[in-house]
């Protein structure tokens, strides 16, 4: 087996307020291999985005990464200097956000921004940088890239802007892309264009991708492996087929059942009752217990530890029996 590109062990990120420190990410383990697409799935407040930001140490006060290891190609990012992190970000590790305007500067033309991104990490002439930028734009399906390079972010539509952000992220052929809900605000036809580009690039350049989303269906179509998050921890992880076809954690089962595609038209959906606990009011034991139909007495006392079998892991005292129909 190849050396993992990214190895995360026991990552814990808290947010401080007057009343104390609340764990948004609570002991997350992740493994990403070169060229692999990992889907990180969760609902709002599950800690999936904070996990993404924590990986590249982009957590500002009142947030703080308090423990765990983040090893990128064997290098510990948690102890890396700010300078080292900056040179990694945008070069070996790229980030794509839901709002592309987070990475695009409104007062600079697209070309200038892309050249800057190239020249920051590499020694090359402006001419070459421009050429490369226009190549990157055409790679994500933007026509007449030379003309587009002279334009400003506001002259692009939302979908185009996101493609520019992706093209910029890909400029230096990173080893890892962390994408935080990049298609959530876009229409399905645009989303499918972007998924297409990302998949193609991952296949062609061997770039690994962590795709953070709330949408299990997108993960099913795009990813190799999936990690399902709930209340700051990964409750189930494995290959897409394992997790989506043979889910063991009751939350994963509930999430799949909540999707309209799981039931025939007009039938009631298998809903999960209740709502996810807020970060400051997580129950003792298993955080999913109050919403869980399979909860046992032990779930109230002991937070289940991860069980891993053949790469399929889950955290549950009373997992759904294997092979039981959804």
């Amino acid at each position: 087996m190849t050396l993992p590109l990214l190895e995360v062990r026991g990552l814990k990120t808290v947010f401080h307020d007057l009343a104390g420190a609340w764990p948004a990410v609570d002991g997350v383990d992740l493994l990403v291999h070169p060229g692999e697409i990992l889907g990180l799935v969760g609902e709002s407040g599950s800690g999936k985005s904070v996990t993404g930001f924590s990986l590249v140490q982009l957590i500002d006060p009142p947030g703080e990464v308090v423990s765990g290891d983040v090893l990128f190609k064997g290098e510990d990012l948690r102890s890396a200097s700010e300078e080292r992190l900056r040179s990694l970000r945008g070069d070996r590790i790229a980030m794509i956000f839901q709002d592309p305007l987070m990475t695009l500067n409104p007062v600079l033309s697209i070309g200038e921004q892309m050249c800057e991104a190239i020249q920051e990490h590499r020694n090359c002439s402006r001419q070459d940088a421009l050429k490369e930028a226009s190549r990157a734009l055409s790679r994500v399906g933007i026509s007449s890239p030379e003309a587009r390079l002279k334009q400003f972010p506001h002259e692009f539509s939302g979908g185009m802007r996101q493609r520019v952000a992706i093209a910029t992220a890909l400029l230096n052929e990173p080893d890892l892309i962390i994408a935080d809900e990049p298609t959530t605000a876009l229409d399905v036809t645009i989303q499918s264009q972007i998924l297409f580009e990302v998949q193609k690039l991952s296949r062609e350049t061997g770039t690994a991708v962590i795709w953070i989303t709330h949408d299990l269906a997108v993960v099913a179509e795009l990813a190799d492996r999936v990690a399902v998050m709930y209340a700051g921890r990964i409750v189930e992880t494995g290959t897409v087929d394992d997790v989506l076809d043979r889910p063991r954690h009751p939350y994963t089962v509930g999430l799949l059942g909540s999707s309209a595609a799981s039931a025939s038209p007009g039938e009631r959906l298998k809903q999960i009752n209740g709502a996810a606990p807020s970060i400051s009011a997580r129950p003792s034991g298993c955080p999913f217990r109050p919403r869980c139909e399979r909860a046992l007495a032990v779930c109230e006392q002991i937070d289940p530890s991860p069980q891993i079998l053949d790469g399929h892991g889950y955290r549950c005292h009373n997992p759904v029996p294997e092979g039981s129909a959804l």
């Binding site: 009142p62 945008g90 987070m102 990475t103 991104a117 807020s278 009011a281």
Partner: peptide, 13 residues
């Protein structure tokens, strides 16, 4: 181009 360094804290309290 630089990443703006921010993350939305979701402290429900």
């Amino acid at each position: 181009m630089s990443l703006s360094k921010s993350v939305a804290p979701v402290v429900a309290a």
